[in-house]
């Protein structure tokens, strides 16, 4: 009886160890890919080649970009954004959220920085989409 209990415990332990190794490997490999400077080498759900501007620029200036878009679309009817590499985008919140399709993409950072933009008073928040 006691031997059986022991072997069962061992089996659990081995299974757990194997599982944690797999998880650790997965996390480690993902982390490494995140750090490497070759985003194109990684197959990713979001095509970063299609962003309108580099990540660093957008992190700091997305509010100015969006405000500029709002102004030129509503007031001047200029609805096409031409990126520095010549690709064209519709000036729309849907363009951003079509790629950044994580529902918490805006919320996570805004809640961390404690900013409360008024976009979703009228526009449909990604968290409200069916």
């Amino acid at each position: 009886m006691e031997v059986m209990m022991k072997s069962r415990k061992l089996l659990w332990l081995v299974t757990f160890a194997a599982f944690s190794i797999v998880v650790a490997l997965y996390v480690f490999r993902n982390g490494e890919a995140e750090l490497s400077q070759k985003p194109l080498a990684r197959v990713s759900a979001i095509d970063s080649t299609k962003c309108i501007a580099p990540k660093e620029f957008m992190r700091a200036n997305h509010m100015q970009v969006l405000q500029g878009w709002e102004r030129s679309v509503v007031r001047e009817g200029d609805r096409v954004h031409i990126a520095s590499n010549g690709s064209r985008f519709q000036k729309s919140l849907g363009t951003c959220l079509g790629c950044h399709n994580n529902r918490l993409f805006c919320y996570n950072c805004h809640s961390y920085a404690n900013v409360k933009p008024k976009c979703w008073n009228c526009h449909l928040s990604p968290m409200e989409t069916p």
């Binding site: 609805r79 096409v80 989409t129």
Partner: peptide, 9 residues
């Protein structure tokens, strides 16, 4: 996601 489809005007 079911936001508005983005297509050029």
């Amino acid at each position: 996601f079911s936001l508005e489809k983005t297509a050029l005007p």
